[in-house]
């Protein structure tokens, strides 16, 4: 594990994060004392066998899953310390975190433009301005020509890029991706990963992506390996 460039600012800081589901005989320890620091401009991968806790870790960073113990800072702000320190976690997500899913998860009743623009309007941006920025993002991701297409009419790769545009809508500092390339062929997977790397550098964002995909390993700055909820470099 190579250490991040000293100049860069840490965006995700975890220490002693554990998570267990259920109690007694049904208890599952999904995460065990996980500590990690991810800095602006980095693209890191989470690897590990199925059930090793990758998604759980990603969801903890996303403030969707509450850790059982530990401490977490996002963008320099203490968010969790044995308990949530912020009540409006959704607002935090809206402003700081972008998501890219394995399946694209676009809203089926909005066209590509509005899927992207919606996230912006939720922060109070006007619809016209939001749409213009959505077009810029779609152009940037090379799906500008599909701006009026409904999700059902998009190919897997197009939908994935629209979803990435949505993840970028509010210029998040942290982008979380759960197997973003699983549904794509190797060429498209490469394009998506190139894009994420470029984003990390251009927007000084931290990108955390869960992946099983061997073909994209070389595009990751760092790799965290999980086994039974424990991190080993």
């Amino acid at each position: 594990m190579e250490s991040p460039p000293p100049s860069s600012q840490p965006l995700v800081e975890l220490s002693g994060i554990s998570k267990h589901f259920g109690e007694g005989a049904a208890r599952v320890d999904a995460l065990h004392g996980v500590a990690m620091t991810i800095s602006a401009g980095e693209v890191v991968g989470l690897l590990g066998p199925s059930g090793s806790g990758k998604s759980t870790l990603l969801n903890v960073i996303a403030c969707i899953v509450e850790p059982s113990e530990g401490r977490m800072l996002l963008d320099g702000e203490a968010v969790f310390d044995g308990r949530w320190l912020r009540r409006d976690l959704r607002r935090l997500r809206l402003e700081k975190i972008g998501f890219v899913f394995q399946t694209h998860n676009l809203l089926p009743f909005l066209d590509a433009t509005d899927n992207v623009a919606l996230a912006m309007t939720l922060t109070g941006e006007g619809l016209d301005a939001a749409r213009r920025r959505a077009w810029e993002l779609l152009d940037y991701l090379q799906v500008g020509h599909r701006r009026y297409a409904m999700p059902a009419q998009l190919s897997g790769g197009e939908a994935q890029r629209v979803a990435i545009a949505r993840a970028l809508a509010n210029r998040p500092r942290i982008i979380l991706a759960d197997e973003p390339t699983a549904a794509l062929d190797s060429v498209r997977a490469g394009i998506v990963m190139d894009l994420l790397s470029r984003l990390a550098r251009e927007q000084q964002a931290a990108i955390v992506t869960v992946t099983h995909d061997e073909k994209i390993m070389d595009r990751l700055d760092r790799i965290f390996r999980l086994r039974d909820g424990r991190l080993n470099a």
Partner: peptide, 15 residues
């Protein structure tokens, strides 16, 4: 699923 997505991207309950 769409509602979960809305919550995930940060839409408030009022939406």
């Amino acid at each position: 699923r769409e509602i979960a997505t809305l919550k995930l991207i940060g839409a408030p309950d009022r939406t």
